[in-house]
Amino acid sequence: MLEIKNLHVQLEEEDKQILKGVDLTVEPGTVHAIMGPNGSGKSTLSYVLAGRDGYEVTEGTATLDGESLLDMEPEERAAAGLFLAFQYPVEIPGVGNMTFLRTAVNAQRKARGEEELSAADFLKLVRERAKALKIDADMLKRPVNVGFSGGEKKRNEILQMAMLEPKMCILDETDSGLDVDAMKLVSDGVNALRDAGRGFLVITHYQRLLDHIKPDVVHIMAKGRIIKTGGPELALEVETNGYADILNEVA
């Protein structure tokens, strides 16, 4: 599904190489986790895949179901089925959460040549999905993420994911800023979306999240490369010993 080959990325503004040849393949129905120390390029990878400005791809490819993501606008990537749950969800004053969700859902449907959801169908769907994430009517009415707590913002990200039903979900440090209860809610939300046709890439610092969202494959990223790949036990190893051993081992 998601196929990244030899991806090299540098910052547009300065001559600084962040990703130095990332190779990664996520098959449908699997959950991949990426762990790694600060500054290893995990978040950059997620931004580059989503199409954020400020990065230059100097080498390599990234495709979703065979289509090159890197040639698409951010909205085209979304319509193609890519979703990034932000580490820091953006506050948008003046735009109601509900309006935002409906605009996004219908924009994607339109881009795919599908019919837009009627107001009634949309409302029914959003209520049902919001309820599972304990998002109340007030949170739906308020401007996007404005005045939301850290946990509310992350739940709101998962609600968007649930509404947009993407093929490939990237979660960028979704566990940061969450307490135990919120982590459970968010993880339940993610797990509810797991199915045979959907892939996940979960970026995290901690094993904690992976107790809730059980990965099939764990990658360790350092200095712009994936240096080790293994099963869930790799995350436990990091939890116990830190990254030092793995870094030494590879060096």
Binding site: R52, D53, E75, A78, I92, T103
Partner: peptide
């Protein structure tokens, strides 16, 4: 720009 990218990343055209 942050808001714009956030909206676009959800599929809303520029």
């Amino acid at each position: 720009e942050e808001s714009l990218f956030y909206l676009r990343s959800r599929g809303v055209p520029e």
